[in-house]
Amino acid sequence: MNSHAQLQTEVQQNASLQQKIYQKRRFRWMDHGFKWLTFSFGCIILIMFVWIILELTNESKQSISKFGLGFIFSQDWNPVKGEFGALPFIYGTIVSSLIAIIIAAPISIGIALFLNEMAPKWLKQPVAFMIELLAAIPSILYGLWGLFVMVPFIRDWLQKPISKYLGGFPLFSGAPIGLGMLTAGILLAIMIIPIITALARDVIRVVPTLQKEGYLALGATKWEVIWKIILPFARPGILGACILGLGRALGETMAVTMVIGNRAEIKASLFAPGHSMAAVIANEFTEATDDIYLSSLIEIGLLLFLVTFVLNAGARFLIWTVAKGSKGGVKG
C-alpha cells in the first residue's frame, strides 16, 4: 500500500459519521429518474388508450364506408352474401340489458338499504362479503350455470306456465325452449346486482347523518327517513350506479352467449332466442374469413366501446354530483 492510499484510509477513518452521511448522497439522479420512470408508466396507459381507439376506428373503416349508417339499421346479417347489418345484435343487447336493469335495480337498492341502514352488525359483514363474492365469479361460470341450471329451470317453471295462459301475447309467444332473451336478461341481472349494490351503498353512505338524525328527531320513522331523505338525496348517485350496471350488462359476453340462443333475429317474444353485440364478436371473430366480415365485427366492437364510454362518463358524473352535494351539505 503506498503512502498516499494509507493517508486516504486514515482520513476516511477519521471522518465523522456526519461527513460520511453528506458524502454518501448517492443516486442523486434517481430524484428525477424515478419521477420520470413513474411518469413514463403513466404514459403507457395513455398510449394504450389512444392505440385502442385508433385500431378500432381504423379497422372498422371498411365497414363504415361500405354500409354507412345503414349498418345500425339493417337487419340482414349474412356473411355468405357479404351483407352485414348490426340491428339484431344491437336490439338483443339493449333488450337483454334492459330486462337486467329492471330486475337488478330494485333488488340492489333494497340490498344497499338493508346493509347500510337496517341490518344488524353481525349480519352486515357476511352478507356484504357474499354479495361481493357474487361479483368475483367469472362470467364463463355464470354462463355454464345459466346453460345447465337456469335454462331448464326457466323453461319448466317460468316459460311453460306463462305460455300456457299468456301464449297469445306476442311478448310471450313461441316455443318455451329456455334459451333466449328473457333468460339472458335474468342472468345479467344476477351478474350486475353486486356492482349496483356496491355503488349504491357508497352513495347512500354519504347522505349526511345530520339530516337523517334531524328528521328522526322530528318523530319520523325509519321508513320515512329512507323515502324522504335518503333516496331523494342519493337519487342521482343511484341512477349513476344503475347506469354503470347497465354498461356492464351491455358488454357482458360469455354468460350471454351461452344462454341467449345466438340467433341473429329480431322477435317480439321474450322467449325467442336472440343475439348480442358482444356475443357475436366472441362467436364469429375467429371465423371471419374475409376483410369486410372482420371489419363489420370490429365496428360492432367500436359501437360497444362508444356506448360504454358515454354511459360511464355520464354515470361517473352523476355519482360525483352526489359526493359533491354531501360535502356542501355538511358545511351548510
Partner: peptide, 12 residues
Amino acid sequence: GLRLHGIRRTSE
C-alpha cells in the same frame, strides 16, 4: 436515516 444514507456496517 443512516441506512438510507448508505451506512450498512452493523457495528456502526
